[in-house]
Design a protein around this nucleic acid. Structure first.
Lengths: 220, 220
DNA sequence: TGATTTATGTTACTTTCTTCACAATAAAAT
DNA sequence: ATTTTATTGTGAAGAAAGTAACATAAATCA
């Protein structure tokens, strides 16, 4: 399934939970569309695609929707991740309330610096040398990379070989899965979400400035 | 211009600077395509779209490419941003090396808690009450929102009315620019990049798990 | 100088995602 | 019971982004 649909599912889910708390029981494609800024037709198509069916003139039952989406997003058991690189961003992520609120648990952090290690914290921080065994023992599948640029590729390869298949990468290196590489056997492939904060901000500046330019032209 | 193209431009730029440091002078669409994981045709199309022209059989001159992209991305003057909400994520961002390395300067942070305020730090942290005047005086156009969910909308509206038009939003609220709202005059519109970390991780779990399911089916 | 090689620039194609539009149908109203 | 209303579900149209392919032209080589 398309990444965009899956992202929308997460957002529908968040919204539906809020509506439920408020006390609503049914919701229309129209409402969900407004909240997400998409057309109601797309909402209905998303649901139809997932075999979720509503009621003519009655909309969708919120509880049913949440249940269906939970099933698809595997939200019925806790989602365990690790964070590799406990610098500012890594630590911020480990302590981020939003994750826990959404049922995501950070099983451990890892760092190369001995002074960062604290095995008995609520979320333990372990040395890189324990990375491989931890991932294998706990069967961790998803990890965050928040190490400096120079370490990113080697950390990535360690994580892949230990069994991680989903990556959220905050290092500026554009990680990509190279099927041709000897390192990875073909049966494996992995999913990488590269978030480069500088690039995201640069991108905003482009649009802000291009709008300013347009306005200047328009005023001439 | 399409968001995807602009993101690729940032990535080309990063790469080109590295190639330049190594000592290269020319580069082929092929090289850039490999590095970014796209087809060479798309690289050429991107450049052609930007009126950047190469040399038949000779590829593109790296210096020229960098200069053209810098112009488009406004990288010839420092890009000043503010960070509103100096919790874990906000602070991590303010001190993030990657931003400075890419010519992005955090002009100030803002927080509601008096104990966080420190007007004389290298990057000052000011109270929310100074937000409006600071944005207006310094003509800041781009801001990061890293406040708790409950504050996000009100902070967003304050920033819009002070003149911010580009937003990187880490709060779980899906901010969107509502033209119909009385709050915003129609001549303004703004660019919002919502990054919901929990949603990004959920998304990875979906793919990781769906691959596992496929494998189980295949083995039956 | 002419042939050959190699990378660009661009047109046409393909694919993928979204919106439009409307038939189907369930609930509500009369 | 019949009509009206409101919302779903979906097939067809449209838009957008990326790929493939090839004519074009510069550089090299003979």
């Amino acid at each position: 399934m398309n990444r965009e649909i899956v992202l929308r599912l997460s957002k529908y889910r968040r919204l539906l939970q809020k509506l439920k708390i408020i006390g609503l029981e049914k919701v229309f494609s129209n409402n969900l569309g407004d909240a997400l800024g998409v057309t109601p037709a797309l909402v209905r198509k998303d649901f139809s695609h997932l075999k979720i069916t509503g009621n003519k003139r009655g909309g969708y039952i919120i509880d049913d929707l949440i249940a269906s989406i939970n099933l698809i997003l595997c939200k019925n058991h806790p989602l365990e991740i690790i964070v590799v690189g406990c610098g500012k961003i890594g630590t911020a992520l480990m302590q981020h309330r939003g994750l826990a609120e959404d049922g995501i648990k950070v099983a451990a952090g890892f760092d190369i610096k001995p002074e960062k290690i604290s095995k008995n914290s609520e979320i333990p921080i372990l040395g890189i040398e324990e990375l491989d065994s931890f991932i294998k023992n706990r069967q961790i599948k998803v990890g965050v990379i928040s190490v400096p640029e120079s370490m990113a590729t080697s950390v990535f390869e360690k994580m892949v070989s230990a069994g991680i298949t989903g990556f959220l990468n905050f290092s500026p290196v554009e990680l990509k899965f190279n099927k041709d590489s000897q390192l990875f056997d073909n049966s494996n492939s992995c999913f990488i979400n590269n978030i480069n904060l500088a690039v995201e901000i640069e991108n905003l500046f482009y649009y802000v400035n291009s709008r300013d330019k347009e306005e200047k032209q328009a005023s001439n």
